[in-house]
Design a protein around this nucleic acid. Structure first.
Lengths: 216, 216
DNA sequence: TAACTATACGAACGATCGTACGCTTTATCA
DNA sequence: TGATAAAGCGTACGATCGTTCGTATAGTTA
């Protein structure tokens, strides 16, 4: 790559700081798209419905993406950004380790019952929809989920090195259990209408971390 | 209930043991429907696609159900029956308690990587799809998931009474953790393509049950 | 202001969706 | 065997799907 080509995947602000007209529209579309997809899925996200919601034409809308699949990919990307801001935003300034892990898990649980997305966690809603549909959309959702897991595993490894977690335990095993307890809260909250879902999840997480905590 | 009215919700064999023609067709349709829905969801389950697969007409197919929603409800019911056979089938002869719980959990993990449904666990695939769509389909899926959880909670309570599990622990908390570890295996297996998903789940389940086991 | 580009729209395409109606075929039973 | 009901098919309907094309408008730059 010789020339400094602009990154087409991101909406770049202009020199004066504001977004160009098209980028502003694109951001509005994606803001609505992630909410629709969190309720009706990435397949229930239709161009016509989105255009009606935003009071614009189908052709004017899809022009920003080119195709339905590109719209879906951009939607997954936008959801990832929103997730990162809400769940990981408060943890970026912390050093990897047990404290940052606690901060992420705590923010994640708050996020599950927040109105970050209209239909609850975007990735809980879309993961089972795409996991048997090979293609770029599945790869994008899988990549985002993997990124969240990888980040926590990094904290776990750091905590083991720091002597805060049992160094003999398998980091993948620990992160499997943590992620499981977070995801289960979605099921009990959204499908089973359990008002204590988050509390149960928090309790499970506390017990799990206590089990792996280094006694020293 | 005075008269012995036949149960219309079930396909009843005739006196000679065989199914009537219509019931046979209906069973064939639902057998295919649960596989399709486990891959593409209850919304991706379309009448036209199902008719093409089964080499029959759309009108002849939907006649057995009346509407798309009734087809979806029947599909959820058929999936529940298949799940019960595979996962709970071997446990019916056991008494409620720790042994039956172990049998169910073990069969459930085997089921996750079986070809019971074409797209993995039917309820893992459909729960996030319907949890924000109020109506009878959501109630049906929620009822089936709840039934599985309730059954395990019954075993947990029985195990507590028998002195096999800590009687001071909250049965709902225990079943939350067990179900969480089972469901997480779906995510790692189907989306993250982790070949060790079931092993991780089994390990988590063993550790969890050991934690709650009564030391006596 | 004039030229140019980015943005949005309107209309139409073929395909598929769920549903309804009428007719034909098949199975059942008196 | 003939009557009766169940089962299945063909066709059509209006609606919506994703996509394409040409045109009009708005914004930017010379």
């Amino acid at each position: 790559m010789v020339s400094a080509a602009p990154n087409d995947d991101e909406t770049e602000p202009r020199q004066d700081g504001r977004l160009a007209r098209g980028d502003r529209t694109r951001a509005d579309i994606l803001s609505r798209a992630v909410d629709v997809a969190s309720v009706d899925g990435l397949d229930g996200l239709t161009i016509g419905r989105l255009a009606t919601d935003l009071e614009m034409s189908k052709s004017g809308l899809i022009r920003h993406f080119g195709s339905k699949e590109e719209l879906q990919l951009a939607t997954v990307g936008a959801a990832g950004e929103r997730f990162a801001e809400v769940v990981l935003g408060g943890a970026v300034e912390l050093q990897p380790g047990i404290d940052r892990l606690d901060a992420i898990v705590s923010a994640w649980l708050d996020y599950l019952v927040s109105d970050t997305f209209a239909g609850g966690c975007f990735f809980y809603a879309t993961a089972p929809e795409v996991d048997r549909q090979p293609g770029r959309v599945r790869d994008a959702v899988g990549g985002a989920v993997r990124a969240g897991i990888d980040l926590m595993r990094g904290d776990i490894v750091a905590a083991q090195l720091a002597g805060d977690l049992d160094p003999k335990a398998d980091p993948n095993q620990i992160v499997f259990e943590i992620h499981a307890h977070i995801q289960e809260a979605n099921l009990w909250h959204l499908l089973l209408d359990d008002p204590d879902a988050i509390d149960r999840s928090r309790q499970s997480l506390d017990a799990t971390l206590k089990r792996y905590r280094q006694r020293s």
